[in-house]
Write a protein that binds this DNA or RNA. Sequence first.
DNA 1: AACAGAGTTCCACATAATGGAACTGACTCA
DNA 2: TGAGTCAGTTCCATTATGTGGAACTCTGTT
Lengths: 270, 270
Amino acid sequence: MNETKTTDADSEIAGTGTLGKAMAVLEAVVTAGGPQRFTDIVQSVGQPRGTVHRLLSHLVEEGLLAQGRDLSYEPGLRLLKLAYRSWSGNRFRDIAEPHLLRLHELTGETVHLGVLQETEIIYVDKVESRQTVRMSSQIGKASPAYCTGIGKAALSSLSQPELLRIAAKTRFHPFTAHTHRSAAGLLAEIDEIRRDGHAFDREEHEAEICCVAAPIFVPEHDLVAGVSVTGPAYRVNMAQLAAWANVVREAAGKIEEEVRMRLGPGRNGR
Amino acid sequence: MNETKTTDADSEIAGTGTLGKAMAVLEAVVTAGGPQRFTDIVQSVGQPRGTVHRLLSHLVEEGLLAQGRDLSYEPGLRLLKLAYRSWSGNRFRDIAEPHLLRLHELTGETVHLGVLQETEIIYVDKVESRQTVRMSSQIGKASPAYCTGIGKAALSSLSQPELLRIAAKTRFHPFTAHTHRSAAGLLAEIDEIRRDGHAFDREEHEAEICCVAAPIFVPEHDLVAGVSVTGPAYRVNMAQLAAWANVVREAAGKIEEEVRMRLGPGRNGR
DNA sequence: AACAGAGTTCCACATAATGGAACTGACTCA
DNA sequence: TGAGTCAGTTCCATTATGTGGAACTCTGTT
């Protein structure tokens, strides 16, 4: 993962010239969720109409956006195609996969693999429980690190200054009654996690959903990640999760080891 | 007919200016599969070293690429994140999903949803058979249209001139013994498919894999797509597939109808 | 007919991209 | 030890590209 020192405190506009602006427009359309009209987009990226118009037509030409008959803009298929290829060529995910499958067999519940990226964790793989209603892929989904099992596990591998930097950057949104509301609580829990080697999510991000997670940390490759086993609170109580902590930690350890082995020294894991 | 091979090799130098060049570099890295060194990249996009170097650093700054300790470049997580959001906000996929689930329940086999994009079909959703060994998401994967069930079904909705244009553009690669080797055979089969309303894949893309597919066509939204039910040849023979043709056609019809209803006139489906 | 609101085009201007060449540093091998 | 090679990085005069305010076109409205 890239740390992007960048001194991101200051204005982030146009650090990357034209590409930066184009990405801002793309992001605006993708983030919006629905189709966006020209004027909406001009609004949300505060750039002049002429500029936005040209950027949009370039993005459409490139297939990153698609334009409908009513002239509205939506994400194009090129993004999916690119993402699929980058995902399927991802060696970290590839190495981890068999371990995720084993973990799923042992527990019967959903297994996640996620990578820390600043204050968020990004899910890069998932083995779904057979009992799950919704089968949708969540790969690429970003969740806050401070209120997810994998997130907290990953944070626990960071050096204290790094952790503090991230914590300072985090906006603590109260998703449920159990969500940390400030850095203090999070930091205290991270201490425990460091001691135990595993983290719990006690319905902190979504009600009725909890998990056990363990960190995967390979500093040589800037890889700060984690695995988790997740289930609905009615089926997996804390005792059950605690009982799984060992296998989760073991899986994480094996992945870590194998990444070190197979990715060699000095390479980049993600 | 005219230029345009597969991706933008050199057909048009830079229709989209800087963005086009940046995307060419990104594509080069993503396509490569493994980590790419600076020199490799310079090679594969025939641009001057200085230029490529700057493009790469912008792409890294934007998070579209990640650079490892050994200076090599890999796809960054930003792509996954963008793709996830564009996928989960996709209304066509959303509308189709329940129909895919139903189809899966009826048949017990893997169900695919794909959109035609020139000579390729891009998978935008999938409901996996419980019996499948590999659970990996194939969303975003691109396969040739001429040798897949969904691809041929989708092609059968096109007007004859459009079809001929695509057929002329297609490179017929002999994946298996049953793959079409030329446009002639494909066009003849498309005629049948138009008559029947459904298409088969008789191990044309992968040995031991076959499917039935039906077209989803909503010209008002420039949507040319298809659904399929796929299985391994040893489990689902042609008779079985033929027996499923009806339910697949029905599902496709319902999706088509619902897209028309819910997306309204003049909007863009994809 | 006048107006408003959305999208598109134009073009003088300046910024940002360009790319050839020079620089650095790590290895190799004689 | 030093010439030789190769990879990555930086420099900077040149100019192609992107910029953005303003004018223009459509469509629909009152």
